[in-house]
């Protein structure tokens, strides 16, 4: 009578190895072994150096865009909470536009749009930034940074607004100036509140990075696409790619859970 199981039955510890779970794990291992034995992996020897370089580029793009995007998201969130209307309205509009249009479109707008505009100005072609704007990765980093800032700006708006005003008043009563109050009271508590959401947004950002391959940045996904084109092996590179992203996602979730565990929580 499985129909009458209660919710508590769902919450059994995952570690307990029940018989059906052992069977499922065995089936999973058999499937993985079969994939390793019967599918074609001979291309791996030729492409693994390229794949590692692509993996590194994906991770690098993820870290850079998340850090810059977060730094940009703080003023966006703050402006929407306490800013005057001439600051909060543009911030809100920015977040709405970013969240209301597909990332792929934003990337293509910047790459094809800006990219086609720059070469038409001779002074740009003679300046020092020309080698930079000729490549694709600055546009990828810019687009992903703005996208992350838009999504996280909205998260931080809620987080800043959610810090109890008594905390800020207490800080003010201690004679903290605005900057110190922000740095010591408001920001840490907001980040603490937003941490689970931030973890989710970072995983989303990781899953967005393959889009940069559409503008010729050679990330991990681009390497797998190249293997597909060169060797006409379709499934194996994609499956390996999916596995790699799963591992990366697991790593990110683990890192964030470690950060969360470091913050002391008082259980009432």
């Amino acid at each position: 009578m499985a129909y009458f199981t209660t919710v508590a039955a769902n919450c059994r510890p995952f570690a307990r190895l029940e018989p059906h779970r052992v069977v499922l794990i065995v089936i999973g291992l058999v499937l993985i072994t079969a994939a390793a034995v019967f599918m074609r992996w001979d291309w791996l020897a030729d492409y693994y150096m390229l794949a590692i370089a692509g993996l590194w580029r994906s991770i690098w793009i993820l870290i850079v865009t998340c850090v810059f995007g977060f730094v940009l998201a703080l003023p966006l969130g703050l402006a929407q909470v306490v800013g005057p209307s001439w600051l909060s309205l543009p911030a809100k509009a920015f977040c709405t536009v970013i969240r209301g249009t597909p990332l792929l479109l934003q990337i293509w707008l910047l790459y094809y749009g800006l990219g086609s505009l720059f070469p038409q100005y001779p002074w740009i072609r003679e300046s020092d930034i020309w080698p930079l704007v000729r490549q694709a990765w600055p546009y990828a980093v810019l687009a992903l940074t703005l996208s992350f800032a838009g999504y996280v700006g909205e998260v931080m708006r809620g987080a800043f607004a959610g810090v109890p005003s008594g905390q800020l008043e207490a800080g003010r009563a201690f004679g903290m100036n605005r900057w110190k109050l922000f740095r010591r009271v408001w920001l840490p508590q907001a980040i603490h509140k937003a941490l689970p959401t931030l973890a989710g947004e970072t995983v989303m950002q990781l899953k967005s990075t393959p889009l940069v391959a559409t503008i010729t940045v050679v990330d991990l996904y681009a390497v797998s696409a190249r293997v597909r084109q060169d060797t006409l092996v379709i499934y194996e590179p994609l499956l390996l790619l999916a596995l790699t992203y799963m591992v990366l996602t697991g790593l990110l979730v683990w890192i964030f859970s470690r950060i969360e565990a470091r913050i002391p929580v008082r259980v009432g």
């Binding site: 899953k207 889009l211 996904y221 790619l241 992203y245 996602t249």
Partner: peptide, 9 residues
């Protein structure tokens, strides 16, 4: 699994 892998892939 589905939520851990990019939609594009």
């Amino acid at each position: 699994l589905i939520r851990a892998v990019p939609e594009l892939v």
